[in-house]
Design a protein around this nucleic acid. Structure first.
Length: 428
RNA sequence: GUGGGUGUAGCUCAGUUUGGAUAGAGCAUCUGGCUGUGGCCCAGAUUGUCGAGGGUUCGAAUCCCUUCACCCACCCCA
């Protein structure tokens, strides 16, 4: 007992009620994905590092400091490539799409996926080192209607899970050219104010000036105000501007969604172009993004595929879990078999096996508890029925069937117990 | 990665300021009251490396140093 072990920092263990909740979230999402025509895929947790460096972006925090690299005991047996635990799903889906030349089989695909992602951040509430994404990617179209569907889909899943309070933030970064143009423009305009910006923003000016809009410092915010007019209206090219305008209209007209158009919204991953969005919850504290996503029209080409448009999103499963009500009492079994005397355990096991054969979930006592103890245990486990095997009754080939919820009990012929239980369980 | 806070029984927490003897409470658990019947009630019992390691001291949960984990904010993102 001296040395015990602890979970690795930033990882979590899901208890039975949490696992139940986890599975419920996944099942609900799967149903909705199916409804929208997204096909599920399962991709490996291990991935070549370059897949993410090329897509997420060399200068992002994820690549710079958060990747878990994997080494083998016998590195000489593997090639020199760096293997990492995947930090996100989009780049990987695209790698899969290109690797299998899916673009030759069909010009349009919709995928969804579930699984653990890994980032070496400092853990806090809603931020783990191993966490789970629910994601979707639609590849092969530039249509604004697809952007709208993806946004609607992510909101739909949250709705179905009962998360009513949330806000949708929407913006457009424009195409690759627009992004570059804007970065330069912004750098030039903000340069005179450089000394007034916070230290982080001064660093951002070089790395990714767009991110200054994200800053929460009051000073930086007020400086950003001065440039709010040039953020989107002016720098977006004609095509990108109308794409965004159309999207906002479609969201309103077809889907009844009133997005909060937020010119300050800038997503951290390099591959985004045009549409970007984020869904926030007011109840999550500092890590308030339930999910986010956007369009990435250059990524497929960047990773060696054809030039096709694509759009996707991911939801943070653990963050959703934080919002859903705790489930305290979980029903484990339907029937518990108690005995008045532990010498009857063989009889109990015989009955147990026949109940399970009939698909009735059931269990017995393995701790030589008293009858009272067994009933207390059954109560704690929230079972519906207890069968009591007593010496007296067994002589007449009978058992006691106790309805725990209604506090009723009756003597039943042992041969009738299965059909009787079956009909009673139907009404539970 | 930066700053602040917390860590005492399975859970929620007292005790730390000002070092002192076997470290407490409620809930939970188990047992009994009821020798064959759960929940309510009553009684009793069990449970602790006082987050970990080191130091100071006659003596440390309490003071000092180091470290780990979690929480909050920043940062980042889902």
């Amino acid at each position: 007992m001296k040395n015990i072990y602890f979970s690795v920092r930033g990882t979590s263990n899901f208890s039975p009620p949490q696992t139940y909740l986890f599975n419920k979230i996944v099942e609900t999402s799967k149903n909705i994905f199916k409804l929208f025509g997204y096909e599920e895929i399962i991709l490996p947790i291990l991935e070549e590092e370059a897949v993410f460096v090329r897509s997420v972006g060399q200068a992002t925090d994820i690549i710079e400091k958060q990747m878990f690299k994997v080494t083998r005991n016998r590195p000489d047996l593997d090639s020199k490539m760096q293997i990492v635990l995947r930090p996100e799903g989009t780049a990987q889906v695209i790698r899969y799409y290109i690797e299998n030349s899916l673009y030759k089989k069909s010009d349009f695909y919709k995928f969804c996926y579930f699984g653990p992602m890994f980032r070496g951040e400092k853990p806090q509430k809603g931020r783990l080192r191993q966490f789970h994404h629910i994601g979707a990617e639609a590849i092969g179209s530039y249509s604004e209607f697809l952007d709208a569907e993806v946004i609607f889909l992510s909101l739909e899943i949250l709705d179905a899970l009962g998360i009513k309070q949330k806000s949708l933030h929407l913006n457009s970064l424009g195409c690759g050219l627009d992004k570059e143009k804007f970065k330069e423009l912004l750098k030039k305009e903000i340069l005179p104010y450089k000394d007034k910006l916070c230290i982080d923003c001064q660093r951002r000016m070089e790395k990714n000036p767009l991110r200054i809009f994200d800053c929460k410092e009051e000073n930086c915010q007020s400086i950003c105000e001065k440039f709010s007019s040039i953020t989107s209206q002016q720098y977006l090219c004609k095509t990108c501007h109308s794409h965004f305008k159309n999207l906002v209209d479609i969201l309103k007209d077809n889907f009844g969604i009133q997005p909060f158009v937020d010119f300050r919204l800038v997503r951290g991953l390099d591959y985004y172009t045009n549409t970007i969005f984020e869904i926030n919850s007011p109840f999550l504290g500092s890590q308030n993004a339930l999910g986010g996503g956007g369009r990435y029209n250059n990524l497929v080409e960047e990773l060696g595929g054809p030039k096709v448009g694509a759009v996707g999103f991911a939801l943070g499963l653990e963050r959703i879990m934080l919002l859903l009500e705790k489930i305290d009492i979980l029903k484990t079994i339907d029937v518990f078999i108690a005995t008045t005397n532990d010498t009857l355990i063989k009889e109990a096991v015989k009955l147990l096996i026949s109940l399970r054969k009939e698909n009735i979930s059931s269990d017995i006592d393995y701790c030589k508890k008293s009858l009272k103890g067994q009933l207390r245990y059954a109560e704690k486990k929230n079972v519906n029925f207890v069968i009591i095997l007593g010496e007296e009754e067994l002589k007449e080939n009978k058992v006691i069937l106790k309805d725990m919820k209604r506090s009723l009990q009756e003597k039943v012929n042992i041969d009738n117990i299965i059909p009787l239980l079956k009909s009673k369980l139907k009404n539970v």
